[in-house]
Amino acid sequence: MRFSRESPSRSRDRPVVFTTSFIDVVFLLLIFFLVTATFQREEGRLSSAREAERASGGSGADLVPQIIDVRADDTGLVFQIGERTMRDRPALEALLRPLPKDPGVFVRVYGSAPEHAVASAMQACRDAGFVRISYVPAE
């Protein structure tokens, strides 16, 4: 009685691939991707058009520029628009909301400020509805 159609000599000639360890490799790959996907935090971005207002003129340039001064002092972060001083982002955003959006806003950054204060100011501008946000290094 023969159960195989192939002759014993032909089956002996066929190359044998051992797939026993294949599942180990597959599981290692799965664990790798699971771990890297879990701990990788998504990055966002905050735009700044440094030279947009300088290049373009017109009606926007005729308006009084809206400038946010960003700096730090002994007590913490300072966001200042004219005479108004804010210490946190929600207060800054609340002040920015009623301002006209067409002329855009300038974020003037002093060297004493940390980078996260700049990001907070730009995010407040974005959340308040400003599209044109210009970064201005303070002299």
């Binding site: 971005r45 905050l46 058009a49 440094r50 950054v109 940390p114 700049v118 730009m122 303070a138």
Partner: peptide, 24 residues
Amino acid sequence: SANHLNAAAESLDQLGVRRWRLGA
């Protein structure tokens, strides 16, 4: 320190790059 960020902004300005983004 924002001094370094200002330096980067100045450098981009000199290169003629008008728009740049800050990562968060």
